[in-house]
């Protein structure tokens, strides 16, 4: 049997090959969050924060977290496409380490997310976003963002393995929007009806958005509720919970993927 690390690296290299062969979809994924910031900032920034400029320090960290949620569909699409085309079966007929396919997916998707965060960060800087926290805080903030991505990755793997076909990805592409809006990414939940605000505060996306705003030294939400005041704790707990629940489910679904 080959080593897990070797096979995972080879498979991650395969995804890098995809980016090279088809750079346009990859660039679109990379730049889409930037478009979201420009759209939200330009169109709603004035209404939300008084001016687009005042909205930028609030919305950029939020969209950094949202970028991690967008990664869910990348993961899911890759997994379902391979399953539907029979590529997964080819892998499973090879003497590979059984965890390699999923580990390779993790590596490639995390690499893509690092690129996505870099693109969004550069765009944020161009729009006047700055961090005022120390280096420790900035490093911790990016760590939390990638941790969220890591948690969502396993959700994506599981959904991808369970999806009836690549068409199901379209459903997730739509559903990330309500999840994104029903959070503190764009708005302070204090402006929402109280029950809706409570849902938004418990959203894992909100936990990470709140935590990184604090670590970057950017303006945050008004707070006052338990989840809003424990953003950092929740931003660690939510991804761990996702991994604990979905990694074993994914591993079991992968072993059983006997369609």
């Amino acid at each position: 049997m080959n080593s897990l690390a070797h096979d995972a690296m080879v498979l991650a290299g395969r995804t890098v090959g995809h980016w090279r062969a088809q750079p346009v979809p990859f660039l679109v994924t990379l730049l889409f969050p930037v478009l979201v910031v420009l759209m939200m900032g330009g169109l709603f920034g004035g209404a939300i924060a008084g001016s687009a400029g005042d909205y930028v320090p609030f919305v950029v960290p939020g969209v950094l977290a949202l970028t991690m949620l967008f990664g869910l569909e990348t993961t899911m699409a890759a997994i379902t496409t391979d399953a539907a085309r029979g590529v997964t079966d080819r892998f499973r007929s090879l003497p590979m380490h059984s965890g390699a396919v999923l580990a390779g997916r993790c590596l490639a998707d995390l690499a893509a997310s690092v690129a996505g965060l870099a693109a969004m960060t550069l765009a944020g800087f161009a729009l006047g976003w700055r961090w005022s926290g120390g280096v420790d805080g900035v490093v911790a903030a990016y760590g939390l963002l990638l941790l969220l991505r890591f948690g969502l990755l396993w959700v994506g793997v599981y959904l991808g393995l369970k999806a009836p076909g690549p068409e199901a990805v379209a459903a997730i592409q739509i559903l990330v929007w309500p999840v994104g809006f029903l959070s503190t990414v764009f708005l302070d939940p204090a402006t929402m009806p109280s029950w809706l605000g409570a849902v938004a505060e418990w959203n894992p996306l909100s936990a990470t958005a709140d935590a990184v705003r604090e670590l970057f030294g950017n303006p945050g939400v008004a707070g006052g509720s338990w989840p809003a005041d424990h953003g950092q704790l929740l931003s660690v707990m939510w991804p761990i919970l996702m991994v604990v629940v979905f990694a074993p489910l994914s591993a079991a679904a992968y072993r059983r993927s006997n369609r």
Binding site: A21, R85, D89, R90
Partner: peptide, 14 residues
């Protein structure tokens, strides 16, 4: 073994 056909496929993008 080697497996070809219905259920073993190749990468379309590469």
């Amino acid at each position: 073994i080697g497996l070809v056909g219905q259920n073993a496929a190749v990468d379309e993008i590469l």
